[in-house]
């Protein structure tokens, strides 16, 4: 048997990973775990509280001692919650569809067409991002009042039918659609609207999916503007309605948490529908390989 001295390379490979690397790995996992717990705990407590009786609400135990679905029965049988749910669905859905259409139309135009003042229009749209909602609600309210939109779907929806953020997002994504696609479609006889719809829109599906999720969630959870613009209980959205569960003496946390738990279902559905579209790289597949 011949003994062969290990080469420098072999020694290098055989050497165990440095202790500092293991430590770094442990710290990373620990931070991720803490982050995960911080995210999940509020949801866990929301579901836990929704399953508790009123006298147990202020106990911090995660598992209810006497679990009950009484709160769900109460909330679902309460006619008000039904209407708030319907209002929220209508508002969030219409606003999302409008944003997908208008933001992408404006983003596409700003990205793919050269016209005088294009840059100014883009900067003007972007600059609205710097104005906080709290400052805008007064002019919005005055507008709604003047046009008779107070306490109506239109009044709740109109400020969010098109957003600067969505326009910016879509413009940036349309940058990744090669001009060759658009020119090829022009030669093939499509008009500009057809090109936008048939060629450009399918290529930015990931962006549309992301925008749909943002807009839907944003409108589903919107509180300040719907609270200001609505007067009648029947026009409330879920966040506004839930805030009214309770009175000055007592807040019915178990009912609020039950309503909140039910209201997360549509957002989960929206996320599950659209997240599969968020796959990058679709655009490049039709280009040089």
């Amino acid at each position: 048997m011949t003994d062969i001295a290990p080469s420098a390379d072999t020694l290098l490979i055989a050497k165990p990973a440095p202790r500092s690397r293991n430590l770094g790995q442990i710290i990373r996992w620990l931070l991720l775990f803490i982050g995960g717990v911080a995210m999940v705990m509020p949801i866990a407590y929301m579901i836990s509280t929704s399953l508790k009786w009123p006298h147990e609400v202020y106990n911090v135990n995660l598992i209810p001692k006497e679990p009950t679905i009484e709160n769900y029965t109460y909330v679902l049988e309460d006619g008000r919650f039904y209407w708030w749910f319907v209002n929220s669905i209508i508002i969030a859905t219409i606003t999302t569809i409008c944003n997908l259409l208008f933001d992408s139309l404006v983003g596409y135009t700003l990205c793919k067409f050269r016209f005088p003042g294009r840059q100014i229009v883009f900067i003007a749209i972007l600059s609205t991002l710097m104005i906080p909602t709290e400052m805008l609600v007064i002019p919005w309210y005055l507008m709604s009042q003047s046009f008779g939109w107070l306490d109506s779907y239109w009044g709740i929806m109109f400020p969010g039918l098109m957003t600067a953020f969505g326009t910016f997002l879509m413009k940036q994504f349309f940058e990744s659609v090669p001009d060759d696609f658009i020119e090829a479609a022009r030669i093939d006889g499509l008009n500009e609207l057809q090109i936008w719809w048939t060629v450009a829109m399918p290529l930015v599906k990931p962006a549309l999916a992301a925008l749909a999720i943002f807009v839907f969630l944003g409108n589903w959870t919107a509180f300040l503007w719907p609270l200001i613009v609505t007067n009648s209980v029947d026009m409330y959205t879920i966040p506004v309605g839930l805030s009214g569960f309770g009175d000055e003496a007592d807040v019915a946390w178990e009912l609020i948490m039950t309503g909140a738990a039910i209201s997360t279902i549509p957002t989960l559905i929206v996320f599950l529908i659209f997240q599969r579209f968020i796959i990058r790289g679709v655009v490049m597949a039709g280009l040089k390989g």
Binding site: D180, E183, R186, I187, G189, L190, P202, G286, L287
Partner: peptide
């Protein structure tokens, strides 16, 4: 005339075939 009215067809350097 617009490109579609010129009775031409073009093949691009990057192919420009629609990936979807």
């Amino acid at each position: 005339l617009e490109p579609k009215e010129r009775d031409i067809a073009m093949v691009f350097q990057n192919y420009a075939i629609y990936p979807h």
